[in-house]
Design a binder for these strands. Structure first.
Lengths: 188, 188
DNA sequence: CAGTAGGTAGAACGTTCGTTCTGCCCGAGA
DNA sequence: TCTCGGGCAGAACGAACGTTCTACCTACTG
């Protein structure tokens, strides 16, 4: 009952619509119609619209975690891991249809920190931050927690600038700034 | 006809609601009721809801521009200007009811770059970026455009982290990172 | 004194929202 | 063979959305 063609179609089209147009802008009717599924089928798989939103974010979260993986323990490998991660973010900015970070955008529409949506956002950000921190520690950086926060700030800033300003410039700035950040791992 | 008590009340309550709860979440009825104004009065002052949203953002933009002012021409003054600006952002993060950058949040709900809302967002960001760039140039930084983009990335990242993560930590990271950025103005 | 702009009060418009319901069809497992 | 869950079709719900309307009152101002 977990996964079925109709549910998969629902989640895929909802993901595309939610990301491209916003959470509140996209109605159930719209999703149902574009997924070629009836309302009854939708409510058979999801208790309500919010659960679809949560499923969308969890799906993105799952995808990112799978793509990023675990940071290696070797110092050189950990540094390469961070460069690869940063490079992937930079490329994402320049991709077609980029509209910023799904989690940041979702949070903008959900003020209540206790809402299920914000919970997913929080968990995703916590995972990302701790992963980067672990990588920085493995790379031998003198201040892993501080540098991880700095990396996150640069990443979030790049996500925003990639959406609202110039993607290519945001990519260049991100990579240069992270390179400076990683220089701290060698010195000292 | 430009400014009147009712219009002022409308704009003030709308601003508070829009920022705290999001643009699409807040309906006209809600604004009208909490401003103690009738719907007829609202539509006498604003052609539609979107115009109220634009007025809200333009009001924030006006306030920020007035508070920030113009960067001084003297190198020392320009550096102090940037420190003061960064400090103000950092304090904003820790203020009660902080819910991120109004412009970033507004853009999350408005995908169409041609929309009036996105126009205001674009103009605000352009002004902020060019102001910081001018200050960096006055401060004698070797790469004003690049450093301005870096500052903006850090500022946006701090805005996001101040909303979604730890405000105090975001403030500390922002100020430390900007201090490093300004160190480039002295060297070389 | 008349005209006009801003305000209040309240009903009403058509749409869209998220959600629920009644039926009917089909294919796979007991 | 039967049953039962997944899917389809379509109507319907109440609520909220943004918007428009009529009617009357008040305070300037030319």
């Amino acid at each position: 009952m977990r996964s079925t063609p109709a549910r998969e179609r629902l989640l895929r089209t909802a993901s595309a619509l939610f990301y491209a147009e916003g959470l509140r802008s996209v109605g159930v009717d719209r999703v149902v119609e574009e997924a070629s599924v009836t309302r009854a089928t939708f409510y058979r798989h999801f208790p309500g619209k919010e659960d679809l939103v949560v499923a969308y974010l969890e799906d993105v979260d799952r995808g990112v975690r799978a793509r990023v993986g675990e940071p290696p323990a070797a110092p050189g490998g950990a540094a390469a891991f961070l460069r690869r991660l940063t490079g992937a973010v930079g490329e994402q900015l320049c991709g077609p249809g980029f509209r910023g970070c799904p989690f940041i955008n979702a949070a903008a529409e959900h003020p209540d920190p206790a809402s299920p949506v914000r919970r997913v956002v929080r968990e995703h950000r916590r995972w990302l931050g701790s992963t980067v921190e672990r990588a920085l520690r493995a790379a031998g950086h003198p201040d892993p927690p501080g540098a991880a926060r700095r990396w996150t700030a640069l990443r979030d800033g790049a996500m925003v600038a990639g959406y609202l300003d110039d993607p290519a410039a945001a990519q260049a700035v991100l990579e240069a700034a992270v390179e400076d950040l990683l220089a701290g791992a060698l010195s000292r």
